[in-house]
Design a protein around this nucleic acid. Structure first.
Lengths: 180, 180
DNA sequence: AGCATATAGTTAGGAGGCTTACTATTTACA
DNA sequence: TGTAAATAGTAAGCCTCCTAACTATATGCT
């Protein structure tokens, strides 16, 4: 279930420095940090995915269920709302909902005001499924961070936020590598 | 190109604490750190993917080319070797190589000693392609880490390594008699 | 009011992973 | 030496995501 295609073993730092001779733009420290980040994220994702798969669900379907399980969602959600919050297309949501509906975890209700739309609601079965699934999922997350104390977790979040700022700076429309 | 299905906006800390009442195993700090980690990794991956896509290549094909471009690979690689190092199945590698061969970036040569096997080699065109692609890729990585100084990068790598230890511990925990 | 445009959701088909099952060759060993 | 098991690579078919094109309904402008 590896969702990311990455090297199993990361290149050594000396290897990167070697490569930097051919590519002057290569910043060995930055590449190393990025590779570690992606490697860890990939492993975490794979771990979650394995747990979900054992329970017969995909990451995408899990996200939809979690979205519907929030207390602020009392009268269901529109598929388009789900798509927006998940950052995927409506077509993808249609597929996810098809699967979840077939499993009996959600239901499509007529929308009272807009005849184009549906209200998606979590069924009792869906709620029960989450109640079964989540305790272990949360224990896995706690285990993941078990070696970091509160202060280190905050540091990690802070450093990742700086990475995110770097990412966003690049995402800006007229970003070009040499303006930064 | 989002490879990971995640919430666009992460839940607030108070939301997590609220949920922790229903699920005692939920450690709000751990969940928050995990979500930030996955969110950032997903954004980074999407950024890379966008650059690759503009150049008509996928993450997987990129990894194969990079693997073949190392100085230690002088006489090509076996597809099975590529699969092992990438952590994907041979069938997947077959597909990646089909695409790369069609584009003229790699060639399948007869193996001199084993008639079942091929030597996969980077062509001149493949090498040129990388020489075009990589400078911007490396500039993107440098931009990503632009807001972290050397010390912070080391801290980040250190903290991520602790997360990795947690992940590995979990993997061991998951050990069951029939997986052995 | 009437028509153009926008929006909700679905369908169809594509790409890139995966698993499973297959063929061809090599290796091990009785 | 002969045969069983291991290994290299491929093929077929599934899953989940995507984009593009489509139907039905709602909205907005004149």
């Amino acid at each position: 279930m590896p969702e990311l295609l990455l090297l199993r073993e990361l290149p050594r730092y000396e290897m990167l420095q070697e490569k930097a001779k051919r590519y002057p733009d290569l910043d060995a420290g930055a590449v190393e940090a990025t590779l570690v980040l992606m490697r860890v994220a990939s492993d975490v994702l794979e771990g979650f995915g394995a747990h979900f798969a054992r329970n017969g669900i995909s990451q995408g379907r899990y996200m939809v269920l979690m979205m519907l399980d929030r207390p602020c969602v009392s009268n269901g959600m529109l598929p388009s709302e789900i798509a927006d919050k998940l950052g995927v297309t409506r077509a993808t949501v249609t597929g996810l909902l098809d699967g979840l509906e077939k499993d009996g975890f959600i239901s499509r209700q007529m929308h009272p005001e807009d005849r184009r739309a549906f209200c998606i609601e979590l069924t009792g079965k869906g709620r029960d499924f989450l109640a079964d699934l989540l305790p272990e999922h949360y224990r896995r997350i706690a285990g993941l961070m078990a070696h970091l104390d509160d202060d280190e977790r905050r540091q990690l979040v802070g450093l990742l936020s700086k990475v995110s700022r770097g990412q966003n700076a690049m995402h800006d429309e007229n970003w070009t590598p040499d303006t930064n």
